[in-house]
Design a protein around this nucleic acid. Structure first.
Length: 773
DNA sequence: TACTGGATTATTTTT
DNA sequence: TAATCCAGTA
């Protein structure tokens, strides 16, 4: 009976409640993963359920992988037969087997957001809509919501009243037609088509219903309508559906998450057993209390209050800064200090923020402070230009119908096939109703191509030769061959910039990813690799074993925990965002508050919140008040440190309603410190540090360039510099200037240069790569 | 056809 | 601020 040994009574009950519908309302840090994994173990060893009949669904691959590992640990054998996967990959697996039954080819490609955008752009052009009025992004998001709600193009059209919506309906129709033509599915289609398959093919549905007798869904609060339809259909026969979630952590409404799925679960399943987990094992008392107080301001929620046996712990630190630079500087130096003084691992820290754009400042400071870090989010590794180019070659070899991939690479590297020629081939393809690639093969029949026809011939010949080799080359060999033949890396080497070097690094990383895949996959194949790649999220790259500080949005942090958490940018207008503050819908603000709740409850030991009075947003300076969420935390739980300014401000504006923080009196958000801002400005030079520090270092992409090798940030200090004070040096971006000062620090030289066109900049020698002239 | 520079515009969050 | 788009030129 040792499966139940380390569980509290509620957890044990949840584990043993194996039959029928079960709703587990699991507060943050209440051990829901433990419950799920133990439940699987219980099913197998106590109830004698065949592991093959159990399915657990998560949202990210990382969560799936984690669950898999934990199940492996407690289940003696058969653990690998439990189907643990994300919604999307489960659907892909089902569709690869049966999608031909609803008229698709089983070797379909999966389009990412960027691919969808390109398709939509063509759709808008084709339908002669004004691109100023109809933005791909908007239309796609409308289509996406429709798909989430399982609304077909026809139904969408029927519902359309306004002329504008009818146009969107037309786009929806045309967009689907094109995906179909390219034998492609977008993200939402994976779910929609699976449900469609289930609804149209009794045999397939029956097969899965019979096989998957025990279904578990993690992060249930974030499921949308199609996902619900999916699990409902799957579980309809045996009705052993166990969902785990926390309505207070529902943060994906904008992406179609339907909170009614969790709030109304008992309506759909009246016999559902509901179990609440309210004991928190993660955070200190102060952190938990702060979280409870903040979330209590929401109206539409199931009331619960987390408690813990953990100690009170320290107070929550709140610090206010002049601007984002100081904020980032504080966080960086605070972490560095704790690392060196208290010997804490870097991986004990995480910085959470509202928008990805905020990561830049932290990245700069971390780089300067030589702190290993990793940014999650922003541009996905597989969305990088160079990676997408190479993948497009692989896709072209793999799936002749994927027009998008072919068009991407037809002129990469330059083959003298320009836009107008491509247009002619496209027109020909449309007229003949054949795929773009097929049209390329018949280039000599395309009118008006002239000499370009032979260039196209050379291209298709090359692709054909790759195709003829794909069966006896490994994916890795094929990829290396493409890189070699196209001189992709060679061209980048010739470019010889920081950016091109970062791209080469990424390509090498891709090759090792492929090697990895071929090593661990049961039956490695080109299609298999491309499919795996299509479904990875950035968070999946996080390696818990590596020692680095994690920087990510609050959204990405869901499901994670850290000893020490910094929540940055706690400002009204940023978090909660300006849009939600001005929205009439109160619900929007509540969702932001839930996001805040998620952030606070990530912290185990300490929580630090920071804000900046002045922040650069889109090249414009904003003055923000301290976030209302900070003010919702009881005064006695907050430590303001010795910051005189904040104290003074506080003293002047103590909230008469009780001991709560109140920064509301500070109408211009500027406090008493406008003077010191001017001082700062001078100190930083006129562009306030943007690009000033760090100099010519290119943080190509969104800083993920070193995603797989965080130690690459550890720059070696040069033994000696080739220039000294008074020398004239050249900088990649700032041009020529005179060295006015060199300060030797422990890890690097800090060089001050007076540039002819950019003024005085301070930078670290190892990053700036200055050359004496 | 390929490249450049100026104008334009975007920001919430991403499986 | 930074990425993207488009028009004009070589």
């Amino acid at each position: 009976m040792d499966i139940l040994e380390r569980l509290n009574p509620e957890q044990a009950e949840a584990v043993q409640q194996t039959e029928g519908p079960v709703l587990i309302l699991a507060g943050a840090g209440s051990g829901k993963t433990r419950v799920l994994t133990h439940r699987i173990a219980w099913l197998i060893s106590e109830k004698g359920v065949d592991p093959w009949q159990i399915m657990a669904i998560t949202f990210t691959n990382k969560a799936a992988q984690e669950m898999r590992e934990r199940v492996n640990k407690i289940v003696d054998f058969g653990a690998e037969s439990v189907w643990v996967s994300t919604f999307h990959s489960a659907c892909v697996r089902i569709l690869r087997r049966y999608i031909d039954r609803i008229g698709f080819d089983t070797n379909f490609t999966i389009y990412d957001t960027e691919d969808s955008k390109s398709v939509m752009k063509e759709v808008i052009r084709k339908l002669n809509l004004d691109p100023k009025l109809y933005k791909e992004r908007n239309i796609l998001s409308k289509i996406s919501s429709a798909k989430n709600e399982m609304i077909s193009p026809d139904e969408f059209e029927r519902n359309a009243v306004r002329w504008e919506e009818k146009n969107v309906a037309a786009c929806y129709h045309e967009y689907q037609a094109r995906l179909r033509q390219n034998n492609a599915l977008d993200f939402d289609d994976l779910l929609v088509k699976t449900v469609e398959l289930f609804q149209n093919d009794e045999q397939v549905l029956s097969y899965y219903q019979d096989r998957l007798r025990y279904l578990m869904v993690d992060e249930y609060q974030d499921t949308n309508t199609v996902q619900f339809a999916f699990i409902r259909l799957l579980s309809a026969r045996y009705r052993n559906l166990c969902v785990v979630g926390d309505d207070d952590q529902s943060i994906y409404k904008f992406r179609g998450a339907n909170i009614r799925n969790i709030l109304g679960f008992e309506k759909v399943f009246p016999d559902a057993k509901v179990i609440k987990l309210e004991q928190n094992y993660r955070s200190t008392g102060s952190i938990l209390n702060a979280a409870n107080e903040v979330i209590a301001n929401n109206v539409g929620r199931k009331v619960k209050r987390l408690w813990t046996k953990n100690g009170e712990g320290g107070k929550i630190r709140f610090k206010k800064f002049q601007n984002g630079f100081e904020e980032a500087e504080f966080v960086a130096s605070d972490i560095r200090e704790k690392h060196s003084r208290e010997g804490l691992d870097y991986s004990a820290f995480a910085i959470l923020y509202r928008t990805n754009a905020q990561s830049r400042l932290f990245e700069e400071k971390f780089m300067m402070a030589n702190i290993p870090y990793k940014i999650v989010g922003g541009v996905n590794f597989y969305s990088r230009k160079e990676i997408k180019d190479i993948l497009a070659y692989l896709k072209t070899v793999d799936n002749a119908q994927d027009d998008l991939a072919v068009q991407r690479i037809i002129n990469v590297p330059k083959r003298g096939i320009g836009a107008s020629s491509i247009g002619k081939v496209e027109a020909y393809a449309a007229e003949q109703e054949i795929a773009f690639y097929t049209a390329l093969m018949e280039a000599e029949n395309v009118p008006g191509l002239g000499r370009t026809a032979s260039k196209i011939g050379a291209f298709t010949l090359y692709i054909q030769s790759l195709r003829s080799q794909k069966d006896y080359l490994s994916v890795r060999e094929l990829t290396e061959k493409i890189i070699e033949d196209t001189a992709y890396v060679k061209d980048l080497e010739a470019e010889d910039t920081d950016e091109s070097r970062a791209r080469i690094d990424n390509i090498n990383e891709l090759i090792s990813k492929i090697a990895d895949y071929e090593e661990k996959a049961d039956e490695p194949s080109l299609s298999g690799f491309l499919q795996e790649v299509a479904l990875v999220a950035d968070i999946d790259f996080v390696d818990d074993q590596e020692d680095y500080v994690l920087l990510m949005t609050l959204h990405s942090a869901k499901g994670l925990e850290f000893e020490h958490v910094y929540m940055a940018g706690m400002e009204d207008g940023l978090f909660p965002s300006y849009l939600t503050l001005t929205a009439d819908d109160r619900d929007e603000l509540e969702e932001e508050r839930r996001l805040c709740y998620v952030g606070i409850t990530r912290a185990k030991q300490t929580l630090t919140m920071t804000s900046a009075m002045m922040r650069m947003v889109r090249g414009e300076t904003q003055y923000n008040k301290v976030s209302r969420f900070v003010r919702e935390i009881p005064r006695e739980l907050v430590d303001l440190g010795r910051d005189e300014e904040t104290r003074r401000e506080l003293r002047g504006s103590r909230n008469p309603m009780g001991g709560f923080l109140n920064f509301g009196g500070d109408a211009d958000g500027f406090g008493s410190s406008s003077g010191s801002y001017e001082r700062r400005q001078k100190a930083y030079g006129n562009d306030a540090g943007y690009g000033g520090y760090g100099g010519g270092r290119k943080t190509y992409g969104s800083g993920r360039s070193n995603a797989f090798s965080p130690r690459a940030f550890t720059v070696k200090k040069a033994d000696k510099l080739e220039y000294t004070v008074g020398d004239r040096v050249r900088h990649v971006k700032f041009g020529v200037g005179e060295v006015t000062d060199i300060v030797e620090g422990g890890k690097d030289y800090e060089v001050t240069v007076d540039f002819e066109n950019y003024g005085i900049k301070r930078m670290f020698a190892s990053f700036a790569k200055l050359k004496k002239v």
